[in-house]
Nucleic acid binder design. Sequence first.
DNA 1: CGAGTTGGTTCGGTATGCGAACCTTGACGG
DNA 2: CCGTCAAGGTTCGCATACCGAACCAACTCG
Lengths: 151, 151
Amino acid sequence: MTDRLDELPGRRCSIAGALDVVGDRWALLVVREVSLGAHRFSEILRGTGAPREQLTARLNALVDAGVLERRQYSASPPRSDYHLTKAGRDLLPVLQALMQWGDRYVADEPPVEFHHSGHRITASWVCDVCGEKVGRGIERHVRDRHEPAPA
Amino acid sequence: MTDRLDELPGRRCSIAGALDVVGDRWALLVVREVSLGAHRFSEILRGTGAPREQLTARLNALVDAGVLERRQYSASPPRSDYHLTKAGRDLLPVLQALMQWGDRYVADEPPVEFHHSGHRITASWVCDVCGEKVGRGIERHVRDRHEPAPA
DNA sequence: CGAGTTGGTTCGGTATGCGAACCTTGACGG
DNA sequence: CCGTCAAGGTTCGCATACCGAACCAACTCG
C-alpha cells in the first residue's frame, strides 16, 4: 500500500500530509468561506480575496482532494457551486484553532466576530448526540478506521 | 491604529491573520519540530526537509513574529538555537487539529476522535444566543471590513 | 596542519503566483 | 433582433518566490 506521506520531505507525519492538501495560501480560506455559506464562485472570490485563476485552481484541487464537492446547479450555462464534504467539515477544528490563535496574537483590535440575525457565532466543540457544547471532560478516543463508529 | 489584518485581501478575519504568519509551507512544520525537541538549525533542517535558505528565512520570520525565540548558546563561533515562545506553544492546538485531520484523511493510520460520555464530539460554528449550528445562508449576516459593527 | 561540523549566505534557473485581458453561455432591455 | 451585462472560467505574460548547488567563516578534532 503506497502512502501519500512517503512522497513528502522530512519527518513522516500526518501534519505534513494535511499541509500538503490544505497548506497553501488559499485553501483554508476557501474552506472558511464555504463553511460560512459562500457556495458560489463569485462569493468565494469576494470572501477570500484570492485571484480568480488561483481560485479556479484551488477549487479544483480541493475537489480532487475530496474536501469540496462540486454541484452543477445549472446545465446551461454550466454553473456549479461548492459544498463541503465530510472531510471538509472535519477541517473546522483546524480553522477554529487558527482563529483562536489569530484572535490572540495577530488581531490587535477586538477579534472579528461572525454574526447571524444579530447573534454572535463562535466555534465550539459540539456533541453530535446531545447537541451540547462541550467545555471540559473531553476524552481522546482512538478508533481504528476499519472499526465502525460507536453507536 | 493600523491593524495587520487590514493589509490582507478578502474578509477581515483572524484566520487570515494567523495564516499570514504560519500559513506558508514550512512554518508549522518548524513549530512541530521545535515542539518535538529539535532546537538546532541542523535538527530542524533534517526534521522538516526544507531547503536550507528557506529554513533560514522561515526561522527569522518566525522569530520576528514572536513564535520562536533565538538563543545564542555560543558566542564564538556564533551559534543559536530556537525555542517556542508562549505564542509558539499556543500553536499546538492547530498542529493537533491538523494531525487529527491528516490521520483520518491522508495517512494510513488509525484516526483519533474526541468523545464525552460515549458521544462523539465534532466542531461547529454555533450561534451564541440560539445555540444553533450554522451552515447555510450565513454570509450576508457576517460583519466584514466594509460594514460597521452592529450596535 | 588538514578535514569536518555548524550555521548560515549567494547565485542562477525554474516553478509558481499574480493581474489584465479574453471567452462562452445565457438573461435582459429596448 | 441587437447590444449589453453577469457568471464562471481560461489564457497570457510578467514578477516574484522557491529551490538545489556552491560557497564561506569560525571553530574543533585528529
